[in-house]
């Protein structure tokens, strides 16, 4: 049987490559200081889906919620091998916290239709919350298995996966449909296929196009990325974006290191003896 798999992917600021100040002087985030990338663990989730397709047949749909430029990660998902890509974008989605995000994503999945598996990354590197996966599962009244690194078996009714728990590792079984959150050590995401890059590099979502662009032409060539708005999936404004988010950011501070005045110790025998004597006198070693 061919499984229907949705992979939730997110475009995130590359927090691993902070070079300039991430905060502007007015205390807001300087988003342009960071380039936008495919959230790393979402690539592991996509790879897991593609491996499953190779193993037993599946259609793999990548779904992301974000501004128009988030279509870039959908193109990359197509380069990796996704069968279908959907951009969820709407001005009223802006400012969503994890609760509002999961509401929109779950509503989009309902609109999508039947699924067997939903795969997420364990966490996104911008917020590091790891909350969206379990929240989507709850909204869809679906079971969840978090911290998965391997799918051991799957058939039309159920699947078993290895996942991490406090005491070690567990092999657990669940009925389908189920939502899995996937860890970085699950696999090595495959590189983009050169052939697929050639095929999809001009794929665009409607929001990315200039007004009056030849949308029909793109659609005819299979290069129009599907795009859904709040209206398409039937969510009202009160439930999404800032309005649907119970959390508020009260304050953001850039991490300024304490800048304590450390005591300088000479790297020679004398310096080290003095240091150790001081620590011994302080009972640090007791």
């Amino acid at each position: 049987m061919a499984f229907s798999i949705i992979v939730l992917i997110k475009q995130v600021p590359d927090t691993t490559a902070v070079c300039t100040q991430v905060m502007k002087d007015d205390g807001t985030l300087n988003r342009s200081a960071l380039s936008a990338v495919f959230n790393p663990e979402d690539m592991n989730a996509l790879e897991l889906a593609l491996e499953l397709r190779d193993r037993c047949g599946a259609t793999v749909t990548a779904l992301t919620m974000g501004p128009a430029h988030a279509a870039e990660v959908l193109r990359e998902a197509l380069y990796m091998g996704a069968d279908r890509a959907i951009l969820l974008t709407d001005r009223i989605f802006a400012g969503s916290d994890t609760l509002a995000t999961s509401l929109v994503l779950s509503q989009a999945i309902r609109h999508f239709g039947a699924v067997d598996l939903i795969l997420c990354g364990r966490e996104a590197i911008d917020g590091n919350t790891a909350q969206v996966g379990p929240q989507v599962a709850e909204k869809l009244d679906m079971n969840q298995i978090t911290y998965v690194d391997m799918i051991e078996q799957i058939d039309a009714l159920k699947c078993s996966c290895w996942h991490e728990v406090e005491e070690g590792r567990e092999l657990v079984e669940s009925k389908l449909p189920v939502l899995l959150t996937v860890m970085a050590n699950a696999n090595m995401p495959r590189p983009f296929s050169a052939k697929r890059i050639m095929r999809f590099k001009n794929a665009k979502a409607p929001s990315e196009l200039a007004p009056g662009a030849a949308m029909e032409e793109l659609a005819r060539c299979g290069l129009l990325i599907e795009e859904w708005s709040a209206r398409t999936i039937g969510v009202d404004a009160a439930q999404c974006g800032l309005a649907g988010s119970p959390t508020r950011v009260q304050k953001i501070e850039s991490v300024v290191l304490a800048g304590k005045n450390f005591k300088k110790i000479a790297p020679d025998d004398d310096g080290i003896r003095q240091l150790l004597e001081e620590l011994i006198a302080d009972y640090t070693f007791d």
Binding site: L99, T129, A130, Q131, G133, T146, S245, P246, T247
Partner: peptide, 23 residues
Amino acid sequence: ATLQGRDLAPRIASALRVGLTAD
């Protein structure tokens, strides 16, 4: 914010429709 805590809390927050701050 153990593995279990981060598995359970979002599920509860989603069902109750309340805010949740991680870690």
